[in-house]
Simulated assay, not measured.
Amino acid sequence: MANSMKSNNAAIAVMQQMLQERCIAEPTFAIKMANPSKSMEGAVNHLCRTIQKSGLCVVDDKTVENILMDYFDEANIEDGGTPINCNIVVSKPELTEEDKAELKEQAMEQFKQEQLRELRRQSQPKAQPKPTATAPKAGAEIDSIPNLFDEL
């Protein structure tokens, strides 16, 4: 489970935070979590197996919390053996109007900087190709014939 958990560290951190908040709100739950036969890996396995059995692909945070709590509450639920290979994704909370305004301002500033860079790049003089003198090839005739009467 350790290998598959690495790709889900953000989700597992959120789950641990959920459980810690539950322990604070309900101290008896902390005792259940301290059970040596239970582990976070087992809880994640139980979560993945339960969701897989349900046939769902997406569940909300309350469902996740309930499944995790069920794992720690019920003494007869075990780790389940071989871990399930799955990806767990945490959705971001809704942004406040203030956050949206700040992100919009940052995007506008970034856009302005990109436009300035592009204008500067376009206004720079383009490098002129260096003229190369071409000497006549060996054995080629010279186009002009010298004349004694021409001025030098």
Rank of each mutant, 00 (worst) to 15 (best):
N9S: 11
L119Q: 15
E105K: 09
A13N: 11
V14M: 10
K62F: 06
S123W: 15
K32V: 01
K92P: 09
N8V: 02
N85P: 00
L56G: 04
R121Q: 15
K112L: 13
L119M: 15
T134M: 14
N35R: 10
E21H: 05
A101K: 11
A2Q: 11
Q110A: 13
K62W: 07
K112C: 14
Q122H: 15
Q106K: 14
P129K: 15
A75N: 14
D99Q: 12
A2D: 09
N85M: 03
Y71D: 01
V44C: 08
T134N: 10
Q16F: 05
D73M: 07
K92F: 09
M33S: 03
E141N: 13
A135S: 09
S123R: 15
N147R: 12
T134H: 14
C23L: 03
C86E: 05
M108P: 12
M15D: 04
S39D: 02
E41Q: 10
P136D: 14
D70H: 07
P27C: 00
K6Y: 09
R49M: 03
A13H: 13
Q124W: 15
A30L: 01
E94L: 03
L56Q: 12
G80F: 01
E94S: 06
E98K: 01
M15Y: 00
E21F: 00
M69T: 02
P83L: 01
A75E: 15
M1F: 12
I88Y: 06
N3M: 02
N45R: 13
R117T: 01
C23D: 05
E105M: 02
N35G: 07
A10P: 00
C57I: 12
N3R: 09
G81Y: 00
P146I: 11
V64M: 06
V44L: 07
E21G: 10
A133M: 15
N147M: 07
V64Q: 10
S144W: 14
D70N: 05
I24V: 09
K38T: 08
K6L: 08
T28E: 03
I67F: 08
T28N: 01
A13E: 04
S54H: 00
S144G: 14
C57G: 11
Q52I: 05
Q17T: 07
Q17W: 10
K130L: 12
G42V: 10
T28G: 03
E105F: 02
D61S: 14
E74S: 06
K126I: 01
N3T: 09
P129S: 14
L19S: 04
A140I: 00
V14D: 06
A2M: 05
Q16K: 13
S37V: 11
P129L: 14
C48A: 14
A34S: 06
I84A: 07
N9V: 12
E41Y: 13
T134A: 09
I31H: 03
E118F: 12
A140S: 09
R117A: 11
K38A: 13
L148V: 04
E141I: 13
A11Y: 02
C48T: 12
L19C: 02
I88R: 01
G80L: 03
E109H: 07
D60R: 01
I12Q: 00
A43W: 00
Q20H: 10
L148R: 12
I142P: 05
I24S: 12
A138E: 13
A11H: 01
E118C: 13
S91G: 15
